[in-house]
Every structure is written in C-alpha cells, then in structure tokens.
Design a binder for these strands. Sequence first.
DNA 1: CAAGTTACCTGACGGC
DNA 2: TGCCGTCAGGTAACTT
Length: 276
Amino acid sequence: MPELPEVEVICRGIRPFLIDRTIRTIYHNGKNLRHEVPVEAMNRELTNNRIVNIERRAKYLLLHFETSALLIIHFGMTGNLGIFSRSSPIAKHDHVRFLLDNGTELRFNDTRRFGSIHIIYPDEQVNIEQVFFKTTGPEPFTDDFSGRYLQKIARGRSQPVKTFIMTNQTVAGIGNIYANESLFAAGIRPSRKVNTISLKSWDRLVAEIRKVLKHAISCGGSTISDFVNASQERGYFQMNFKVYDKNGQACTTCSSTIKKMTIGGRTSYYCPNCQK
DNA sequence: CAAGTTACCTGACGGC
DNA sequence: TGCCGTCAGGTAACTT
C-alpha cells in the first residue's frame, strides 16, 4: 500500500497524537518483519523517551526522540501505523505496540511482514542521509529533482522509464501506482527506454510526478483494499486513477482501450494513444 | 556495470 | 466446500 503519498498521510495523521508523548512500554508479538525487530534496543533506547519530531523520507517514517535516538519504519506492501486506546482489541498482524504516557497506543500492523523497523542510536551522531539514506535519491519536491537531473542519470542506460522512476536511487517514493499514473499524465509509455526521452519530456514528467503525488496526498492517499490513516479513514485517490487497474477500460482522454503489460515484474497500465 | 529475476509473506479471488 | 494457481501498494539479493 504505502508509496510516498500514503506514508505522508500516515506521518501527518499520527504526528498530532505523538509529538511530546513519552513511550512507556513496547510490546512485540514475536513475529519478525523483513528484518529482525530490534526489541532489546527499542526497550533500552525508547522506553521513557519523548517523541520530539516525526518526518517522512522516501517511503520511510522517522521518529525523533529527545535523546536523539531515531526510529525508522518502513511499511513494505501492507504495513501501517495507527493510534488506538490501550483497551481496544489487538488486531491480527499488530506486530509492535508502543504504549504512551496518556494510555493510547501506537500500533504497527503489517499483514505480509515486508515492512521493517530500524533504530539509530543517539551516540551515532552521524548524518542519517550519508548512512541510512546514502543510496536514496532526491525527494520529488526538492529542486535537485529536475528534468536535467533525470536526463543526466539516464545517459547510457536502456531501462524502461517506469522501472527507472520506481528505483529509489533515481527518485524517492514512487511505487507502482504513482509510476503508472505519472507516466500517463506526462504522455510517456511505461516501456519507453530512458535513453530515448528528451529533456522536454523529462521536465514534463517531473512536473506531473509532483502534481500526481500532491493530489494523492490531498486525497488522503489511495485505498486499494485496506489502507487507512491514523484515524482509520480510507484514502480516495483511487477515484482519480486514470490507468492503474483500468485494463480494458476506455481512456478518459481519448476513449482508446487501456492496455496492460508487465515491466520489471510489475503490472503496468497505459493508454496506447495518449502515451508515446 | 546494468538489467532482469526471485524471494520474502499473507490473503483474496477465480476456476474447477 | 475446498484445492490450486495467480496476484497484490516494496525491496534487496541474486543471476545473466
């Protein structure tokens, strides 16, 4: 579920419930995620520690603590965070729960367990960008993400553009849904080789990626099956999908039939008339 | 090195 | 009703 817009929605949703709250107890159901859950380290570093800031970087959520300890959470395909009262029933796949000083709990739920939780120690006063995010590309909304930048790193490569923009080294946060939707908005076929794309098209793609992501955030993200924000409300950007999961349907622009193909192992959708 | 493939895990769905 | 194959928002470790 969570691409950049959904992680941003999670971030904005939990922030008001967590800033200046102190963690009292951490519970783990024993199941590992993509990596081993750092239970010992979390207990030691985060118990009785106050959350001072929460931010998103790429598809990760960063919780900053008073001691400078940092909790980094990735959501994989099905991960999510929610705020619950301590007494509300524990859901299946609630793997980690953080009991706060006001009796509420932050719960990490992840059906498929492709998510991950990392902890960065306060004494590791390293630049997180140069360590944890050293291979992560620019955020889509910053100035270093530009048509010129994409053209430069695409030089000498023959990858399909969809795979290229879904690679987090190229740009952070774009997954399968928003790659498909952005390429439609920019009029570029997902299978198009990156070394055949003009600067003008790269510029247009950058602009459309920003537009699509911002629109999705304003809609509370996309809920395909079960994504909800911190208050258990569904997103509705799926109402605005133009091509994603629209195989066989009429293009909203030209009425041509939307096609489906597999690129880099991921299902891709496009309008054969609007996207060249 | 770039690019393509596979594995990780659970659940939903369609066909038989 | 149930069994089986396929597919799903991601990513990293493989192989080619």
